[in-house]
């Protein structure tokens, strides 16, 4: 059922009063991301110091493997994989929301200071309190949410697609980076190395509890995004047009800022500030789908970047594992550069 009379490039499914539009290229991109995610996840679940053949992986997954196999899969690798997927999806979604909201290609939690806020929370807990991992996680989440709140209060009532939100965010980020520097200089060597390790971002040793926490944040954020997605879409036409079309602009913006802050807090608290994911994922998704409207694709690309990066991190360099955050920047950055260069040659995108 294609639309012949108006060439809106989409397939339409209609059942009674209900109708759904599906863009072919978006569906293909989403399906491709899901397949790639499954492939990378299977590969990374079966490789490492303890190798599993595909049939042994299947046996372990279905509960007919050896005790050792099942331990490796269910206690070590799957929780880490699930965390990687959910953290990546949270960050990709948060980045897509911020970029839509600010109508700025650089609008991301890294630029707006939320990541730095999470870092202040985590470093404060490590350096001042010498706290446990659970407390560090909670403190990082509180830092990100607090920063989101401050930015919201400072920019309330102004159009976030202007420079105000981005400039306020940059200012807040600079202040928080200073605080982080101070916390590092006054810490002893053990705390400092723990802090620097947290600042790089890593997924080693994540358990089901952490995976479930991020999954819950992702589910809540995903539902909120679905609710405001139409409004965010209208806002792409500018504030005045969006109001004219009947979008509840104030509510959409507040919900978007809160949702993106919570998603960032959830992702960063559990995995640390994985570099570049939130910034790169929406751009990569936009280039895959040929449209910047798919939040689902941005989330999937985020999940893919973190999963690939984590697999590469486990694989390591010279037999030594790397922190995940070292690799995300490289994976996401290289892929984005490649897309920008090749698509520029084809003249598809600026």
């Amino acid at each position: 059922m294609s639309t012949a009379s108006t060439p809106v490039r989409a397939a339409v499914i209609r059942v009674g009063d209900y109708s759904v539009r599906l863009r072919g290229r978006t569906v293909a991109a989403v399906a491709g991301c899901v397949l790639a995610l499954v492939a990378v996840a299977s590969w990374s679940a079966s490789t490492g110091t303890f190798e599993l053949t595909p049939d042994r992986l299947w046996a372990a997954l279905t509960g007919s493997g050896t005790h050792a196999e099942e331990f490796i899969i269910w206690t070590v690798r799957l929780p880490r994989l699930a965390t990687a997927v959910c953290v990546g999806a949270c960050l990709g979604l948060a980045g897509a929301i911020f970029q839509t909201l600010t109508r700025n290609a650089l609008g991301s939690p890294d630029i707006l200071g939320l990541t730095q806020g999470a870092s202040v929370g985590a470093l404060g807990a490590i350096v001042i309190a010498g706290a446990s991992t659970t407390v560090v996680t909670g403190s990082a989440a509180a830092g990100a949410l607090g920063t989101g709140l401050v930015i919201y209060l400072l920019t309330r009532g102004s159009d976030p697609s202007g420079y105000r939100l981005v400039l306020v965010g940059i200012g807040v980020a600079a202040i928080l980076a200073g605080v982080n520097g101070y916390l590092l200089t006054r810490s002893d060597i053990v705390d400092a190395s723990r802090a620097v390790f947290w600042l790089t971002g890593d997924l080693a040793g994540r358990d089901w509890g952490q995976a479930a926490t991020v999954a819950a944040v992702l589910a809540a954020g995903g539902i909120a995004t679905l609710v405001i997605s139409r409004g965010l879409d209208a806002l792409r036409l500018g504030e005045v047009t969006a109001v004219g079309l009947g979008a509840g602009v104030g509510g959409v913006r507040a919900t978007a800022l809160v949702t993106a802050s919570i998603l960032t807090a959830g992702g960063v608290a559990v995995a640390g500030p994985l570099a570049f994911v939130a910034l790169a994922a929406p751009h990569i998704a936009a280039r895959l789908t040929g449209s910047s409207r798919s939040f689902l694709c941005a989330a999937l690309v985020g999940a893919l970047i973190v999963t690939v990066a984590d697999a590469a991190a486990v694989f390591g360099v010279g037999g030594r594992q790397l922190p995940t955050g070292v690799v995300t920047g490289v994976v996401g950055g290289v892929y984005l550069m490649w897309l920008l260069v090749t698509q520029r040659k084809k003249g598809v995108m600026p």
Binding site: T3, T6, P7, V8, R9, A10, V12, R14, D17, Y18, S19, V20, R21, L226, V227, S229, R230, D233, A234, L237, L245, G246, A247
Partner: peptide, 22 residues
């Protein structure tokens, strides 16, 4: 595209499950 932009005008008549009626 032009058609996509014009289609945005349908916003107040649409919903999450009513994306593109006849």
């Amino acid at each position: 595209t032009v058609a996509d932009l014009v289609a945005r005008g349908r916003y107040p008549h649409q919903g999450i499950l009513r994306q593109w009626s006849a």
